[in-house]
Design a protein around this nucleic acid. Structure first.
Lengths: 349, 349
DNA sequence: CATCGCATTGCATACGAATGCAACGCGATA
DNA sequence: TATCGCGTTGCATTCGTATGCAATGCGATG
């Protein structure tokens, strides 16, 4: 009895049928009579039989496991993505095998991943080199870069329109009458930062302004604090900052208020990116661009399932629109509608 | 070449050895000469061979996979646990298969879990009935309840000393001269809430006070907001609140400040539990009891590895001490040392 | 009544790696 | 030179399930 040692053969024996019959009973669409199925289910139930997913994987060449690579989980955006992605996949009979990458680069975990015969890979807050992405493609394993793109990579990607988001923010801040608009960058090598900054600068330029100052925060809290101190360490300081994501923006706000004694938005406007749950906590009330998690996750699952079912690895690139969410952390220009939060501003789910 | 179709047989053929030799090369401690090993590794490298973990699992009866069941990830405590647990396990060659439970009760995901022949289970922010825990024990699968206990369950558990934490908070608040101390409970059925509340009430009693008022917040943000409004909705209001975890305490603070216009800690002291990263964000500066994640995770991994290696499922119950972390959200009595945060209060990692 | 077709069933094999067992080779020893 | 022992090696089997193929039985049709 130990180690869940009930096999299809045990069930077959008890039900007086062949092992094939047992297998067919648990294979949707297989050819079994109602009568046989009933006998098998009764026996299976009596013995507490559960099909062995590992053995099934070996023969069908499908594990129904998706490898998810993450580099960090302290930016709240990612835990939420993980939760919903997992629920979505679970509904379809798939499960997540987690891999933590040390830095943003996940190449070193790939060999481990490949050992598990997973059906697909999702990279979130981590990137894969084109070389390894190609290797996955050759092996017939679909890869989705979540919230990232890599130029000539064969991997698929799901992102929000970061360039447009950057533009919206530039317009919003200029419309608000700001004249010294600064930028705190995330990881300068990341596609999210490049796109957000690119759109932002482009639109600033179109509107006849230049980015007044720029510091790098590397998407970390400590980096954001330092960047803020550098940015505001001079006699003349910015009257607005665009911070490349909410995670940093919150640290920026705290630093501005509690270390530099500035008032938001009276002394300085702050805008972030992502719309993480904390962004509408009353302490922050952060104006930001939403990256809609649900649509992004749905797209990710669709891409994966599509490629898995058709057994063809393609390069799908899905981009969902982002939406400016206006709250109170930045001066509000004429014509912008302030986000109406739920009855309680803290109803997060 | 597709589907990573390189098997140990292919390698054996190329290296002019038997399949056994290939297997032994990749099995630490097996009997192979240096010479053979070299040939095999060369061939394996040339073909890009990776042992198939699924096939290995089938024969060795060990998957090196730990099933982790979580009910939600919005309380920051859990993503961090997940991250570190995953890193710890990865170092030892184990990986996490994630399961999301719908409510706190995880019984319905167990059948799915069992199909994957996992070597152990960790339940975090989710509970298993004693019946199913017993089933796992019978199947030889160790189960660790993380941050939870269940009375007569055969499952192991790792917790911090919640009773003592509750006592420390009572003492701290009474020492602070508070006279109307309220409590906002989490999930009343959870062991964490019971223990924290139990220790708290016991010590209050010992010090000659009673809990002035109590509301239930169910460990959710919305619940905490409502509980706060009920608790402070009368003419006479508490001069201190103990909130059963930080996640809720933050919502409580925001509600007190921005909805009720109260000042912390001048009008009311707030104390939480867990010491999540947000607790030392300058906006909150929350006094709380730390549940030390690293020791708790180490204990969890030790328990799992111990039981897996000895092939014996026991009921280990590990309890690590908690520590009161004094910050600025509650009036500070004589004799308590305020926590010195790192250079930057935002250096979280 | 003979024939055909379809649905159901069992047999045998395959998936990829680990391992008990026996055989082998080599050097050391008597 | 014959024997012993140890370190290597290959053979054959095993893990638990899925599935192609052939065999069976049944009712329907002519």
């Amino acid at each position: 009895m130990r180690r869940g040692k009930v096999t299809s053969i045990d069930v077959a024996r008890l039900a007086n049928v062949s092992q094939s019959a047992v297998s067919r009973t648990f294979t949707p669409g297989a050819s079994v009579s109602e009568e046989t199925k009933r006998k098998v289910l009764t026996a299976a139930n009596a013995l507490g039989y559960r099909p062995n997913a590992i053995a099934r994987t070996l023969i069908t060449q499908r594990s129904r496991i998706i490898g998810v690579v993450v580099a960090y989980l302290d930016n709240q955006f990612y835990p939420l993505v993980l939760e919903w992605l997992s629920r979505d996949l679970q509904k379809r009979g798939y499960h997540i095998l987690m891999f933590m990458a040390d830095t943003g680069d996940a190449d070193h975990v790939l060999p481990e991943i490949l050992q598990y015969q997973i059906d697909g890979i999702v990279m979130a807050s981590a990137t894969l080199s084109s070389g390894l992405a190609q290797e996955c493609a050759d092996a017939g394993i679909p890869v989705v870069l979540f919230n990232r793109t890599v130029p000539r990579s064969p991997a698929s990607s799901v992102t929000s329109d970061n360039v447009d988001g950057g533009r919206q923010i530039a317009r919003f801040l200029v419309d608000g009458g700001h004249e010294r608009i600064g930028f705190i960058a995330g990881d300068p090598d990341s596609s999210t930062n490049r796109d957000r900054e690119g759109g932002f600068l482009e639109e600033m330029n179109r509107l006849g302004q230049r980015c007044w100052a720029r510091e790098v925060g590397n998407y970390s809290l400590a980096g954001a604090v330092d960047a803020t101190e550098r940015l505001f360490g001079h006699a003349e300081r910015p009257d607005a900052v665009f911070v490349a994501n909410d995670h940093m923006a919150i640290a920026v706000m705290d630093t501005l208020r509690y270390k530099l004694g500035l008032s938001i938005p009276d002394d300085v406007s702050v805008v972030g990116y992502d719309n993480v749950p904390q962004a509408h906590w009353p302490s922050y009330n952060l104006t930001t661009v939403e990256q809609p998690p649900k649509p992004m996750i749905e797209a990710t699952v669709d891409v994966l399932m599509g490629q898995i079912e058709s057994r063809s690895v393609r390069r799908d690139a899905i981009e969902v629109p982002g939406r400016l969410v206006v709250r109170a952390s930045a001066r509000i220009p004429e014509g912008y509608r302030v986000e109406e939060e739920n009855a309680s501003a803290l109803e997060l789910r």
